[in-house]
Amino acid sequence: MSRARAGGARSTRGQANLPALAVALLLVGGSVGVAVGLAGSAFASANTDPEDARLAASIADRLVAADGPFSVRANVLSKAATQNASADWLPADADARVTLDGRTVVSRGDPVGGATMRRIVLVAEPTTRRFEPTMEGPDVATLPRRATSATLALDPPAGVTITTVRADDRVVLHDPNGLDGAYDVALARYDTVRFQFDASSDLPAGSVEIAYRVETTTKAVLAVTVDA
């Protein structure tokens, strides 16, 4: 092989290695950035009063528990409860603040420093919807998923008796003498519910009105700051 060819081969290999070198430099730079970020977080934690951090974490854990003062269930907060919160349960010997997406929910004193603990939560808001089924077809009324409960107002015409109401083939109401009036029915949260009505004759539209509750949720950041 001539010197010219050898030099050309080395030049080609060098150019081919340039992209690999660039990728390696990017990876090294990214690793350094992550390390610096972690070091900064560790430094910030080291400068946080451990008692403040412990108390803030304890309050945050209590708020997201199933039996918390604002809870609908674990990690789900009632929007109405957070809008009408009381500070009575906050520690009396520390300045503390609870916020939800930056909005102050409740506070005691003025925690200008201290420690902050954050949790990702869902904020639930129930709404009620009403409709009158047409009473046609085998499943005469269908409710969407997330319906948590329903109130059935039964008003059959004269001479017609409703004896049984089923939800997905499960008997939820039964009276051989006839059902007439308003009845509350608990529903499975994640099921699509289909109501069926057993009556002595066909039921016309207007014989049944259904009011059902659904829960809408939004994601939010719960933050607890404590400065003891």
Score class of each variant (00 low, 15 high):
Ala94Glu: 02
Ser201Trp: 01
Gln15Ala: 15
Ala182Tyr: 06
Gly8Ala: 15
Asp95Phe: 02
Leu222Phe: 02
Val28Ser: 14
Arg170Met: 08
Gly181Ser: 08
Ala199Leu: 01
Ala158Pro: 01
Ala96Lys: 07
Gly113Val: 02
Asp101His: 10
Val185Gly: 02
Lys219Met: 03
Arg189Lys: 11
Val105Gly: 00
Asp169Pro: 04
Pro133Arg: 12
Thr134Ser: 12
Arg119His: 09
Ser86Met: 03
Ala81Ser: 08
Arg213Asp: 10
Leu25Glu: 13
Asp67Met: 07
Leu152Asn: 03
Leu27Pro: 01
Ser58Arg: 12
Leu90Cys: 02
Leu63Trp: 03
Ala150Glu: 01
Thr163Arg: 08
Ala94Cys: 05
Val224Gly: 05
Arg189Val: 12
Ala9Leu: 15
Thr225Glu: 05
Pro204Tyr: 03
Ala74Cys: 00
Arg213Asn: 05
Ala228Leu: 08
Tyr212Leu: 03
Asn47His: 13
Leu38Glu: 11
Ala85Lys: 04
Ala24Ser: 13
Thr142Asp: 02
Ala57Cys: 04
Ala228Gln: 09
Phe43Lys: 10
Ala66Glu: 11
Ala44Phe: 06
Arg5Ala: 13
Met117Ala: 11
Glu125Asn: 15
Asp88Trp: 06
Gln83Leu: 12
Leu222Ser: 01
Arg194Asp: 09
Phe70Ser: 04
Ala56Gln: 04
Asp93Lys: 13
Ala85Gly: 00
Thr116Glu: 13
Leu55Trp: 00
Arg213Gln: 14
Ala6Ile: 13
Arg103Trp: 09
Arg213Leu: 06
Pro204Lys: 05
Thr161Phe: 00
Asp227Glu: 12
Arg13Ala: 12
Val32Lys: 10
Val224Gln: 00
Thr134Gly: 09
Gly102Tyr: 05
Ala46Pro: 01
Asp191Val: 10
Pro176Asn: 08
Thr116Ser: 15
Tyr183Pro: 06
Asn17Gln: 15
Glu125His: 13
Gly29Val: 00
Val121Lys: 06
Thr12Gly: 06
Val64Asp: 04
Thr134Val: 06
Val208Ala: 04
Val106Ile: 11
Asn17Ile: 08
Gly178Cys: 09
Val123Arg: 07
Asn47Ala: 10
Gly68Glu: 03
Ser201Cys: 00
Pro144Ala: 07
